[in-house]
Nucleic acid binder design. Structure first.
Lengths: 246, 246
DNA sequence: CTCGGCGATATTGTATACGCTTTCCCGCTA
DNA sequence: TAGCGGGAAAGCGTATACAATATCGCCGAG
């Protein structure tokens, strides 16, 4: 009776109901990946949470093979940590990693702003304003999960406008990791991005002022980083090496 | 009789010779990954080359399961392309991708130089000088494969000195992809990095002149990019849509 | 009462088997 | 002779089975 399987994407099993006989599993894998990824980004899966292969395969209705593939991809994206004989768990970023991620964002996202200001279109602005608006709404409604995801999506979308797919993908990954960092080091109730920062940024971009947008983005990211309380909470693995032999 | 299996790392099969019974397969996977990765970076596997799972599993003496895992990782690193029902092949970068990669390198590697100049130690300098020397030797000896790999390793190592592991990993990935780009768009006989560029760069870094190092790195990368002949050779998939329907 | 050893269980690692899709070759026909 | 269609083979996608190992609880001894 533990057959309760969530269908990630309403799909009537075109193969006739027999699971996994039709070859179009690629989309399904993609959907499952996004499903788990979203759950992590939205903090519905907290850092440290274990992700057992059996459980996931049961939930999503595919075998462990497919789950392992997805888990490995998530590991390469640094969202989950794969411990050799212990399985997968949601990554708990260290303080050093957090610093690295925000330094990287500082360099790449700020560096992208001039080009974004040059290329941004009216349609882009409209879509981004809508995202910013929905983010504020979610924040006001207390739906932190939605707000976090929208914030990451905003930054990712912005990066894509630069036209550089490689850097945009990197920024997206950094934003996902930032979401994890917020989950560990963020203060409850104080979300990363200030309410009107994104709107202000769009104003500079609309005016084509790339340099001002860059400076603002820099302050924006610094503000997020400053709002964190990074205190290297070493709950597990108390660093005996460092305490004694160190 | 087709049991000729290359042992990537001289390892006497501690399990007793029976393949894959001991659980320390992680190192072996790592070794196989590096083995394939190196072959691609050194152009012993040329872009477009097909990588059949059966053949690889036979060569390395592990089952297709492990090969698939490695292939998927290589795909995420953009070194191989995974076509849904057609298997894996060495990625053939498009002209757009090439531009993106070099723009990304321009932003990240140049941006890293000031911090590298601040942190570089005498030991680092010695190691890097040795790498540059070996690269020149290889180039002189006509061993392009070795030279290419050493050049990528030089840039990667340099990035690591910054202390930012995230950005360093990104740079390493970009360098690997650059190697592929050279294989497709590079002119034979003219390797990417000029002979003495790396030594000159080390000179600036030793002097702690981060800004000059940044400017030099920028010229260095521009020179490499300019040496390419990017001509969008669309041998396969002649873009009928674009030709007719416009 | 606490600590150490031991066995049962749960969970991952690896290999293999099977089905489906694609591809390639060969014969057929116009 | 060239184009087309069918069949056989090859290769990928998925699931399942088996083996090895880490974890956890239990029991006995000091």
């Amino acid at each position: 009776m533990n057959q309760r399987q969530v269908d990630t994407e309403r799909k009537p099993a075109p193969g006739g109901g027999r699971p996994g006989k039709n070859g179009d599993g690629a989309e399904r894998h993609e959907a499952i990946h996004r499903s788990i990824s979203d759950a992590i980004i939205e903090h519905r899966l907290k850092p440290g949470a274990r992700l057992r292969e059996d459980a996931l395969s049961e939930v999503f209705g595919i075998s462990r093979t497919g789950i392992r593939k997805i888990l490995q991809r998530l590991a390469l994206e640094q969202l989950v940590t794969l411990t050799p004989r212990r399985g997968a768990s949601v990554t708990r970023p260290t303080a050093d990693e957090a610093k690295d991620v925000f330094d990287a964002r500082q360099m790449v996202e700020c560096g992208l702003m001039p080009e974004v200001a040059r290329r941004i279109t009216a349609a882009d602005l409209e879509a981004l304003r809508d995202m910013a608006r929905r983010e504020r709404q979610a924040l006001k409604a207390g739906e932190q999960s939605t707000a976090i995801k929208l914030s990451a999506a905003f930054h990712g979308r912005l990066a894509h406008i630069s036209g550089n797919a490689t850097l945009a993908a990197f920024v997206e990954q950094l934003c996902s990791r930032s979401s994890l960092i917020l989950a560990v080091y963020g203060n409850a109730g104080h979300l990363g991005c200030e309410s009107h920062d994104h709107d202000d940024l769009l104003g500079y971009l609309e005016g084509g002022d790339g340099e001002r947008a860059r400076a603002f983005m820099s302050r924006h990211l610094k503000a997020i980083e400053a709002s964190l309380s990074i205190h290297e909470e070493e709950s597990e693995a108390p660093d005996l090496y460092e305490i004694f032999s160190g």
